[in-house]
Write a protein that binds this DNA or RNA. Structure first.
Lengths: 343, 343
DNA sequence: CTGAAAGCGCTAACAT
DNA sequence: ATGTTAGCGCTTTCAG
């Protein structure tokens, strides 16, 4: 009973494979009698259709590829993407799709597009940073439906947090607490999140007529805590003459490092200096004091990405290659507070 | 240039599809001339073999299923499994396998085995807790090679941390610091990790001649922080007459909640009471004070699981259905300290 | 060394 | 309503 095919159940029921196939796929021209006989036989023989054969015959695999990069510590290990993926998965598997992990790190000679073609996937969720845009170019320009979440591409719809809005939310929060000297630890300027957040900072400061102090801006080399410590040291080395009253970072890990560095140097957070982050990753709730940050709605991102991809795969041509912005939300915890004395 | 098959390159080169196939698969009986012609044509026409057709013909999909459950907040969202999966993936993709996510939460009528059969996977990595053992029974008993990581099954090799050893490591550490009244917050007794850690605690206490105090033992209902707070309250409610000098939990989240609860009640950790955890998840480094815990070697687990599965899929019959224990390591941070005054 | 042809399991015309 | 048959793209005997 290892491999039972529709031929087996055709033989058992006395009907032809064609009829069996039709019955199995709920086609119209099949008698009640045949349908029942087929169902019974399938149950008895424990028949499971072979998706490989189905795919070969129909050119539909019911497979969605999750195309991602493992550089930047991204990929599966980054909770941000995993959470989006989870939500995406829930959305698409309700329509019968399975998820295939595709990151041809090893298959050097073959790119993402070839890999996708090879596996006959019906669509792809792409999480590739701009720095590796070249790797997904052929895929995005192919006829395989795609949706992007990590970065934005003009050839596919993308779903991404409202980085600008989120940055503005936090800055408005700090401003309302009386902060005017707001330092900024920027994320690396190698992709949309880093760019947009930094630009929003500059815009906010300009709009409110606050001076943009070069000594209050520093760039982290990546999104790790280690880079955060380096950036924190650098910032403190630059701004000791005129300390900011608040430090806002483009990513929670950077804020965490900043917070820790400040405490070690004897500054009290938030009494002497406020610290704010972006992302609301798990550690922000565990930090001491708990970090005020901007939360991304990852479930919404995954869900919308799933819906868009499903529509594309269904041939819905009304899905445009535009950027969908998912609103963020301000999470006020303990690392920010009203400024006490202004000098 | 959308779909190029070996027929196309056969036509272009003038050779037959058989020869083309042989050349592509590096078979013996193919002339240098034919081989070169085929390679050239493939490159020019951007040929990518169709894995679906290959699978149908060879019955080998080069697909490995990651079979997991989404209950218990497990699945992709649990960093523990994701890290193991990452390591596993690195191991198997070096051999040309792709990973397919399989968790038939939605496909209620079809179980894991049917799902795997449907997709023709070559092997499966199973992360299913004992509480759902029935769902993987048919899969594990089938001819599909399997390796288990979340729980142990007698029908497949499993790779799992040395829970007993780890528990003993921590208890020995606490003992060496002078602790004798060691309370224990057990994980739910619904699976191997929970069982083994709890049993090891009992064994250690017995071996060292320490009394097993019912008021110093409490069971968490699950692995979440919330359950941890409940357990912490329960423990403090039971043991106020005779406080333990140390509290050891079967999981870091539980320890985190314990630590937080103690601080809120005015106890200083570790000065008045030591707290220890198990797992070394991310938050343990962020807790205040940083948590002393037992680290699991997830990379080693994933790697070994991958190696075992590869061997099984290669038909290596020397791979036994045994439990492979991966050593843990004691990570001493700031939440445990030598006991000061013994009464 | 190369070509022809059968077959993998299923679907989808096309007949009947 | 049911049966027949030709593919889907590739591998693999088996001849030549």
């Amino acid at each position: 009973m290892e491999k039972v095919t529709i031929y087996d159940i055709a033989k058992k029921t006395g009907f032809s494979v064609g009829t069996v196939s039709k019955a199995l796929n709920n086609y119209k021209g099949v008698s009640e009698k045949a349908r029942n006989a087929v169902q019974l036989a399938c149950a008895e023989m424990n028949f499971t259709p072979n998706s490989t054969a189905q795919t070969l015959a129909t050119k539909k695999s019911n497979l969605i590829g999750y195309v991602f990069s493992e550089t930047l510590g991204g990929g599966l290990l980054h909770p941000h993407f995993v959470q989006i993926l989870q939500s995406f998965k829930t959305e698409v598997e309700a329509s019968g799709y399975d998820l295939l992990l595709i990151n041809s790190k090893t298959t050097v000679d073959n790119g993402f597009y070839e890999h996708c073609l090879h596996r006959q996937i019906d669509g792809a969720l792409i999480a590739i940073p701009r720095t590796e845009a070249g790797r997904v170019e052929s895929l995005i320009n192919s006829s395989i439906p795609c949706v992007s979440i990590e970065d934005t591409y003009s050839e596919a719809p993308s779903v991404i947090s409202d980085n600008k809005g989120g940055t503005m939310q936090m800055l408005a929060h700090l401003y309302s607490l009386g902060h005017r000297k707001i330092a900024y630890i920027a994320a690396p300027q190698d992709g949309v999140p880093g760019w947009e957040r930094y630009e929003a900072y500059l815009q906010f400061m300009t709009e409110r007529g606050l001076p943009i102090n070069e000594n209050h801006i520093v760039f982290a080399t990546n999104y790790t805590r280690k880079a955060g410590y380096t950036a924190a040291e650098k910032l403190l080395g630059k701004c000791w003459e005129e300390l900011p009253t608040a430090v806002f970072s483009a990513y929670d890990e950077l804020s965490y490092a900043m917070q820790d560095t400040l405490e070690r140097r004897g500054y009290r957070v938030p009494d002497e200096i406020s610290v704010a982050g972006f992302d609301d990753i798990l550690i922000s709730q565990c930090a001491t004091p708990k970090l005020t940050t901007i939360a991304q709605n990852r479930d919404a991102i995954g869900k919308l990405a799933g819906q868009l991809l499903l529509r594309r795969m269904d041939g819905d041509t009304s899905v445009e290659n535009i950027i969908h912005r998912i609103p963020t939300s301000l999470v006020v915890r303990e690392s920010t507070r009203r400024i006490l004395d202004q000098n």
